[in-house]
Write a protein that binds this DNA or RNA. Sequence first.
RNA 1: GUGGCUAUAGCUCAGUUGGUUAGAGCACUGGAUUGUGGUUCCAGGGGUCGGGGGUUCAAAUCCCCUUAGCCACCCCA
Length: 442
Amino acid sequence: MKITPRTLKGFRDFLPESMIPRERLMETARDVYRSFGYSPIDTPALEYLEILSGKGGEESDRLMYHFEDHGGRKVGMRFDLTVPLARFAAQHINELGKPFKRYHLGPVWRGENTHRGRYRELIQCDFDTIGVKSAVSDLETGLVIHDLLQAIGFEHFTIRVNDRRLLNGLLENLGLREQSAALLRALDKLGKIGPEKVAQEMMAVGGATQSQAEQVLQLASLSGDDASQLKQLAKLVGDSELGQAGVAGLEAVLQGARAAGVSTNCLQIDASIARGLDYYTGVIYETFLDDLPGIGSICSGGRYDNLAELYTKQELPGVGASLGLDRLLAAMEELGMLEKVGTPADVLLVYFSAAGLSDYLRLAAALRAQGVGVELYPEAKKIGHQLRYADRRGFPAAIIAGDDELARRECQLKNLSSGQSSTFPLDDTAAIAEAVKKCAAP
RNA sequence: GUGGCUAUAGCUCAGUUGGUUAGAGCACUGGAUUGUGGUUCCAGGGGUCGGGGGUUCAAAUCCCCUUAGCCACCCCA
């Protein structure tokens, strides 16, 4: 009786075809983060339960995988990278200095119900700047998102920016500060259920009056250029100090972004985004793909005033965002942006007979030293078989060097998409490497 | 967590009012072609019909339970 091979609900295997673009995406994220000066860190998958359940209480029990280890310690698996960052920062900030900019790519686990694009094990790609309150860091966070999406290959996307202080300032003005959580939750559904139902929910659940609900909804109906939108917002928040700070924050982000060359198409105010994380206190970002808005935000983040207050007396403000790798890959798949490749190598080296093995090994080593990925076929099967293998795996090229070629100290390089071959001296590995790279280029 | 839909070969699916040995396309392996892939032709392997229980002379087909997936809602650190 064999054990049925299967994976847990919400957990997935990745075949090369999906793992290759996945790794590429992570590499792109790392490159962009590094280009802004963020440094890599890592933290354990397991933490003491008390670290992770700091504020969640009962709710976190449902969401988090937790258990008792063999030493009787109560432990939990991290469900995001922000809480571990808070612990990490509280523990190490004196060695790190401020500001501290880090990126962190890694899996997190959530024991909640699964949906399309939502799994129990997922990769997060976070970057944060902690230890400073500067608006420059707020702005830079948006710039990273912008550069990241461009580096991945997106042209049509919208980074929506908002500021928590704006919303709270308005609510303060209206005397609704106490109910802000319920009201923001309602406001966040705007795109989904429309303004009328949002107003209804605000009145029913949030305790707002009709006119209060309408004023909150005005936030979401701005028009005109940056300056006039900011003017409208300033008017809405009136003399609320908090609200004015929010307007100023947004102004700084918009001006900076324009100075850095970010177009109005790619980054704009959307005062209705309110979603999520309770701990955000300032600027908020959410990013949508214009060609696939239904998939939701693929990169979100914002500013939080005191990341690590649960763990240290030191005040540690921060700002950052997180790329939802799995959701983004699902989107790219749907948009046909992922070409199917079954191999990461550039060329297949056909194996004729053991007599040529030393030459093959020497050639392969020389090509690899020049940055060309080479796969040597491991057995002397028929050439047709080996070429078919190369074709199906998506190799762009094959090197063919049988007894005849080797006797002449030559090899053939066959471009598998055009079908054309050319001959090179076996020793001229620089020329071969260059020709292979030409085949591999799109 | 609530409600609905679904599960047949590696993948996409057919399978009549319950009826005898469960099929197709693609993929895979071998051959036609002993040194040139993608096309074509031939052959082959691969299924306890998601799992368990029940009804029946007889179940892929009907009933119950369970697991997994999809959709909507709830929630979202």
